[in-house]
Each structure stands twice: as structure tokens, then as C-alpha cells.
Design a protein around this nucleic acid. Sequence first.
RNA 1: GUGGCCGUAGCUCAGGUGGUUAGAGCGCCAGGUUGUGGCCCUGGAGGUCGGGGGUUCGAGUCCCCUCGGUCACCCCA
Length: 419
Amino acid sequence: MADSSFTAPSGTHDVLAPESSRWGSLVAHFAGHVGRAGYGLVISPMFEELGVFHRVGEGTDIVTKEMYDFTDKGGRHMALRPEGTASIVRAYVQHRPVGSPWKAWYVGPNFRYERPQAGRYRQHHQLGIEAMGADDPDLDVEVIALQADLYASLGLRQVDLVVNSMGTADDRSSYTETLGAWLGERSDDLDPADRPTVATNPMRVLDSKRAATRAVTDDAPRIDESLTTEARDRFARVLEGLDALGIEHRVEPRLVRGLDYYTHTTFEFQARALEGAQNGIGGGGRYDGLAQALGGPSTPGIGFGTGIERMLLACDAEGVFPAAEAASSIFIVDVVDGTHARDLVADLRRAGLAADRAYGGRSMKSQMKAADRSGAAIALIIGEDEAAADEVTVRDLRHDEPQERIALDTVIDHLRKRL
RNA sequence: GUGGCCGUAGCUCAGGUGGUUAGAGCGCCAGGUUGUGGCCCUGGAGGUCGGGGGUUCGAGUCCCCUCGGUCACCCCA
């Protein structure tokens, strides 16, 4: 692009109508879906003190390499939020809302400084829910079921669910230690690019796609072998619940999610219809230690997040959830002087009808063309004859029916009967 | 952050080995039909060929730099 013109920043996108109407529909659909399950909207800031994010994911790329952080004019070190959960939990800790659990949903942008590619953006948008204050495994089942049913209700069929359990925070740290030691002994066999990760975040190595590393990690100790009996029983109860609800899933002990705060249940949904690497359309898990890490009381919590862009990409790939047509139903053509259109369009809109008109005093042919393109069902035509008689000509744009002339003051009643 | 590919009208793209005023389709505007859309026909508007530098008598075309897009890696929604 030329230096003299501006474009949206790299990795960001303008969403115009009609595509934007899909976003609106999706958010409204989501609000109804989780609203019926008791989740209420929470609106939280798009930026927080850096520490909110830093404290919850010190070993993750999302907070170590990819944050948009800045110092504000007051000298505070802030960051645009790279993920949704930390802000919600921070809000929970701050306000201590009632409810056991407290159920919240959110929608909004997340920011990550990464190299953009298909399905990956520097600003992307997520819908999600969080439920805090209950550690009942049935709540894990509810959250996963809500997410699975969300995709199904959009029409998505080619979606796989993988689940895993990280156990308690103790389970997780002892496993991390075991795995780190085990990998450390085999460091030379790993792909060189993965070797530094053994020290910083051993579990991430399990997620590597590199062949050499995979060959090693295929035989690595598994997390499910490190779980306490209680954690194992708990996970079994979750899996039993998924079975009972008919939610297909695959247990994947190597599933490692991008954030470090997860305990017990973690899960991820993958769209088979999306080619390439960016097929994760959403995921989540339990984070029983997060509230405490943010300075609050020890509080269990679980939630999921799902990417709007990736959901819509998956919908495109499967040919479901199309954009709704946002056509006005009535289009006014005034070839006299425009004042009739000016007044009539306002009257119709005040009466709650969807009405639009042509501008600029163009020819009848041109205005009729505009009426056609607008997708309106009915054109109201006002020429010299109609104006003189205080009438309008009603023309059906979708059916071949004779047009009729009616009195101006009966137009609204007439249209209400027809539409 | 690393690598591949690509930047010509609002959009999708043509423009052999450098050669007169840079083209098409779609879209837009108008006319054909002086009161009627869709189909058809005709015309018009719209481009510093991403930007800068270089080679050359001459660069959309060749070279260098740069910016942007895209795809993949890393990572993730």
C-alpha cells in the first residue's frame, strides 16, 4: 500500500456488513444459549495491569512474548488483554459477586503480538463463560456440554473434542518435575528447537509437532499416571457425565493448553473442516488456583473460550450459519422533488417499518434500480400524478402483480397488512 | 522472531524476450425505454502499475532497498 494511505494494522481486520451481521447473530445466539443456563454478561476492560496476566502465565508464550504492553501516562505498566479468563477472575476477586457458582459470560477482543496467518490475528475475538465458586465435576460437564451444544446449534458437525486432566496443582507440579527430568536425560534426542523448552516448560514439549521430539515423547511418562486417586476419580466422573449426555470425546493425556493455570479438567475443540494448523476453535479448563494467584480467596473455577473468527471460518468450511440478509422491506421512489420521500420514509420508520429510499434526485429508472438492489419487497412510487392526488403507487418487487394506487394516509395500514 | 509466494482500477485478474495515450470482466454512474427494477445493448467515471532508488534513449516489465499482503514454522482462538 502507498505510504500516504492508512490501512488496518497488521493482523487486524475491518468487518463490514453483511459479514458483520453474522457476528451480531453469533453473539446474540451465544447470549441466549448460555443465558438460558444462568450465565450473565460481564463487561470487563480490554486492558489490565500487566501483573494480572503476568502472574497467571509466566511460562507461556502468550504472556512472555506476545503481549501488547505499554506504560500509561501515570507510569503504570499495562497490557491489552491477551486472553479473557484472567480479567474475569480479577473482576471476581475484586467484587466477590454472589453465587455458588457465579456464572458469567463475556465477549470481546484479545490481543497477541504474533505473525498473522490464516485464522490467526493480532486482534481476535472470543466468546466465553466462566463459573466460579464450585468444584463439582458436574459443573465441568455442564461447561463442556454448553460448548459442544453451541457448535452443534450453529450447524457444525465436524468438530472433535479432546479432554485431559492435569490433576491438582500438586499433581501438575510433580508431573512437570518427573517429565522435566525424564526429558532432560533424553535432551540430545529431541529436536534442537525443543531443548530449551525442557527447562522452561516441560509439558509444552509434549505439544511439539517436530518428528524427532515426537519420537521421544511417545514413550514419555503420562500425566494420567501421576494423578492422585481423588483426581483420577474426579476425572472419571466428568467423563461419565459426558457419556451420559452423549457428548463424544477422546481422552488425550498429551493435551497441553496454552495457559499454565489449568488444573483437573482441560479440553479443546478442533474443527476437522479447517485445514492446516489453526483448527482449534475453542477450549478451556478448570483453574482452581487462579483466584488465589490474583490475590483473592482460594476459589475453584472453570470456563471456556471460543474464537469468533475461527468459528465463522469453520462455519464457512462446512457451509453453515450464513450471513442474514439485512434488507429493508420498503423502498421509496420519489421522482418529484424528494420531499415526499423525505417525509414518508420518516413516517414509515416511526411506525416501526423497515424503509429506505433513493437519494440525489435521480431518474425513476435509476431509483427503481436502487430499489431492486436494496432487496426491498415493495417499492412506493411517487410521481407528479401521485403527488397531486395525495397517493402512492405500490409496486411488488418480487412478484409479477399489477401495481396499485392507494391514498397516502392509508399507506402504513396497507403495508402492515402486506408484510 | 524465521522462511516461501505475491503486490497493475472498488473487486478478480490480463499485460511473450523492456518500446507509442496501461487493458478485460464484475461493480459503480448515465443513456437506450422523456413514469417503472431484474435481462440485453451503448457510453462514462475510476490507475502517481505499493513506495523509493538504480540500469537504459526508453521500465508495469530488469536489479537493489523498503513497505504491505498471504501462506507455513513457532504458538494459539
